[in-house]
């Protein structure tokens, strides 16, 4: 009896949580008649796969998909590399004023991006990085390093005993060789956690591409979806088809990469 009640409560809670996802996927194949029907249709009466084709024609979502993949891919790759290098220095290299430099890194986490977005915008546009393919550079340049990644990887590196490093030195292994050949493979789960987290935040960016990108050819997917929302307001099926396409990569990560997300998200919660 108690079990059944708990189940009922959980199911009741799951409905509103799941509904927007269901509505995006189901609505994406619904015709305009279903979506505007009264009483409202909750289940598609027909399969309107042409919503997808029409959404792709209305806004160049395909091109924007590639732009977003490129932008997020570059940001992720660079943040992983710069974070690994910095984390290695903090964990294994002799350093003067280590605490001060580490504090300097962490202080960047306290500066809200929105508080420095104006000067960054002015600098990037005065460098001409809003013109043509240079837009890609403008999209990624401010995000090529991160204190969060450095912090998380430093924690991971510190788990390995310094004897590991000493043994490698005895074997004549230099720093870079030790780092890439031994440490990076060992710390792969933490690196994956940083990668997943960085990729998701880059993929989901909104404010920066909104103000930066002028040439529609270099627009990102997130902005594209909202443009679809503006131009196709009369046909919600098209918009939801576009949303479904934009959701695919992140949905995939949430379902299959959950353990990496949790590792990355909670790194700061455990002291």
């Amino acid at each position: 009896m108690r079990r059944a009640l708990l189940w009922a409560v959980l199911v009741l809670a799951a409905v509103p949580v799941l509904f927007p996802l269901y509505y995006a996927l189901a609505g994406g194949v619904m015709g305009a008649r279903d979506l505007t029907a009264y009483p409202p249709a909750l289940v598609p009466t027909g399969l309107h796969l042409d919503n997808y084709a029409q959404a792709l024609r209305s806004v160049p979502l395909g091109r924007e998909y590639l732009n977003s993949a490129l932008q997020s891919g570059i940001i992720t790759l660079f943040q992983i590399v710069t974070s690994i290098l910095a984390a290695y220095a903090f964990a294994f290299l002799p350093m003067r004023a280590r605490a001060v430099v580490f504090g300097l890194f962490l202080s960047t986490l306290m500066v809200p991006w929105e508080a420095i977005i104006i000067p960054n915008y002015l600098a990037i546009s005065s460098l001409g990085l809003t013109k043509g393919p240079l837009t890609y550079l403008g999209l990624v340049l401010p995000f090529l390093a991160s204190a969060f990644g450095t912090f998380l990887l430093r924690q991971a590196f510190l788990q390995f005993p310094s004897e590991l490093r000493d043994a490698a030195v005895v074997d004549g292994c230099g720093h870079l060789r030790f780092l890439w050949r031994i440490l990076v493979p060992l710390a792969r789960p933490s690196i994956a956690a940083v990668g997943v987290y960085v990729f998701l935040s880059a993929w989901n960016q909104y404010f920066w591409p909104l103000i930066l990108v002028r040439d529609p050819q270099y627009q990102t997917l997130q902005i594209g979806v909202t443009q679809l929302n503006d131009v196709e307001a009369a046909d919600p099926g098209l918009i939801l088809a576009g949303v479904s396409m934009a959701l695919l990569p992140t949905l995939f990560i949430v379902i299959f990469g959950q353990r990496f997300i949790v590792r990355g998200l909670t790194a700061g919660a455990v002291k």
Binding site: A13, A14, V17, L18, P20, L21, Y23, A24, W203, N204, Y206, Q222, I223, V225, T226, L228, N229, I239, L240, V243, A246, L247, T250, L251, I253, V254, I255, Q258, I261
Partner: peptide, 15 residues
């Protein structure tokens, strides 16, 4: 319950 995390601010707001 973790599903909303798959949404970006843009996709969630549009829906």
């Amino acid at each position: 319950f973790a599903m909303p995390f798959a949404f970006s601010v843009a996709t969630a707001s549009v829906v």
